[in-house]
Write a protein that binds this DNA or RNA. Structure first.
Lengths: 340, 340
DNA sequence: AAAAACCACGAAAACGGTTTCGTGTTGATA
DNA sequence: TATCAACACGAAACCGTTTTCGTGGTTTTT
């Protein structure tokens, strides 16, 4: 019962013309007479002819596919980025191949190699934790040397010369910390991750700078560095109980939520006794009780920009355009975990 | 500076042998002498030769790509399914092309058509709201008639003959409702969506059946049907204030969270005064306060099964294998929004 | 009426592989 | 020494397009 996909060859044979004539007729070429074109186009429409993407890709060495490699997909921020990429890419006729590195260096390498052999026209990616830890970027270098463009977003590196789009994480943390200071908070705890993450590093810096600008020094006792997976709520609990802060800044959403819970369990009120601000404006922040004031990262916008940068580069003839780095401004979404 | 990708032709010219010899040598064919093979393999390794995926796809009419079409990616359940698909597919050497229908019938059709012209070997998909509403499945029929296999998950339809994997939604709702009844709850509100969703329909049925089996009738006043987007918390508030239930069953996570908040604002305690159970075991349920008892849908498992079904069908020679429908058992994750 | 121009189309190469079949060379067999 | 495998490799077709470059036939120009 299989309706075999119809090809140019079939049409040519059926209509007793050559394959080239069919191809040209379907592109409305001036070379072909009105009569022949109409006949061929009618036949093609009748049998619902659609050119084979693979053959076209092979011919013009353009796949119209974008490879996206992200550390994790069960993560609100990354899904918003993907949505942004999809939006833009689909409108431009591109498909999106998503691969997950699972925060692993090896998987990131394998996925890139799989896709780099003709499957895609370019990459959009955010580095895995493993890669940031290992500081090995040879797989990226090799790909760019082959002329395959890369756009890095969020978790980027200076080691690779390519287009980048990211959030000014330092400014985000600065704004958040300043907000807390302006409200009279003096003992601001920082919940952060181990240091190899570029984003965390920058957020830590913003926190520190805001303190310094306000005449406060960085007190290492107020900083808790957690592995970013397998979060141990007890550690947070011990830490907060030991230092009794009047405010908490968290470099992500989940630490903020945990912090809030610990504080509330102690019988303290949020935001009256302790103000809390997190990063990543996701579902948890929005629906927490009280809702969590957050630094929004504008993932969807980021995805759109990344896709735009990549497609422009893929489609530009001259490959002499300088690489751009687009830095987005973070926004502080004020909710109920801080005083207005 | 572009290191041009090396091809069989390059190797052949460089080593002064034919392309066929190179091809065979790299596949370790018995036809080629030990000496020649070693020479060619060494050269290929040195220059890091990797066959061009597109050319291979064109030749064997297999892309090793799976097309996944889902309504929305910023949605915990779907992301877990994707993760499951990725896991299984990658292990089998397949890539995953993700397209978003955005709950729109038209976008679903466009995406399918884009991918169906050679880009993928098969589809895994969950129907968009638009498609379920319109009940038009011709795009699916056309694809299957072309011999491209489809696996439907979660939001499926009887109209299409293909492999399917889904959760026994009725049983899930039944279990949840029964749990509430067993705890002595008598006035169980149901927060559900408009009726065209197959999943909601089945969950509603489970709710009703549990009531009937326990000698209670279905009281339409206890049922609130909401459009599933642009949720209006006020509607939920009015509804719950009007009927004062002692328990709430929600067909998704978000309605459950809203319900909980409304109840708490009224000064009632969860679960003492009102027990609540939701569907979809996501982040919100886990981190709500109190945490939300939920019916887990095992998205990751679902994705793995779907990928397995699809790949088996793609790779099987005989296309006479009967279509299977795999029904997963839902699990009730008991948390703090119900009494233990 | 011969030369030039134009029209409408086809042949063939190319993209980068895989695979079937054929063939020249070698060594063993009768 | 003639015959025949076995061996090691190459030619060519094929997958489905696009595109360049002919070319035979008609029309226009002089």
């Amino acid at each position: 019962m299989l309706k075999q996909k119809i090809t140019l060859k079939h049409i040519a044979k059926e209509l007793d013309v050559s394959i080239s004539t069919v191809s040209k007729a379907l592109k409305n070429s001036e070379e072909i007479s009105r009569d022949t074109k109409e006949k061929i186009q009618a036949f093609a429409k009748l049998y619902n002819y659609k050119p084979n993407n693979i053959a076209i890709s092979l011919k013009n060495k353009r796949t119209k596919n974008i490879g996206v490699i992200i550390p994790d997909i069960v993560h609100h921020f990354f899904t918003t980025v993907i949505r942004g990429i999809e939006n833009y890419a689909n409108a431009k006729g591109y498909n999106v191949i998503v691969c997950l590195s699972d925060e692993s260096f090896d998987k990131e390498v394998i996925n890139m190699e799989m896709l780099a052999n003709g499957s895609i026209d370019g990459f959009i990616m955010s580095l895995s934790a493993g890669t940031e830890k290992k500081k090995d970027f040879n797989h990226l270098k090799e790909v760019t040397e082959q002329g395959i463009p890369i756009v890095l977003f969020d978790r980027v590196t200076d080691e690779i010369n390519c287009d980048k789009v990211l959030i000014d994480d330092m400014q985000g943390a600065y704004k958040a910390t300043k907000k807390l200071l302006d409200q009279g908070r003096q003992k601001i705890a920082l919940l952060t991750t181990e240091d190899f993450f570029s984003v965390s590093r920058n957020r830590n810096k913003g926190y520190e700078k805001a303190l310094k600008d306000n005449g406060l020094g960085l007190d290492e006792d107020l900083v808790l560095r957690l592995p970013f997976m397998d979060i141990d709520e007890n550690k947070i609990s011990e830490f907060l109980n030991a230092i009794n802060p009047d405010a908490i800044l968290s470099v992500n959403e989940i630490f903020g939520i945990y912090g809030m819970r610990v504080v509330q369990r102690k019988g303290l009120r949020v935001p009256e006794d302790v103000s809390i601000i997190g990063f990543t404006d996701g579902l948890l922040a929005k629906h927490a009780n009280p809702s969590l004031t957050s630094v929004a990262q504008h993932g969807e916008r980021m995805g759109e920009i990344a896709a735009n940068m990549l497609i422009e580069r893929v489609e530009s003839e001259s490959d002499e355009v300088a690489y751009r780095t687009k830095i987005l401004e973070p926004t502080l979404i004020e909710r109920d975990s801080t005083i207005n």
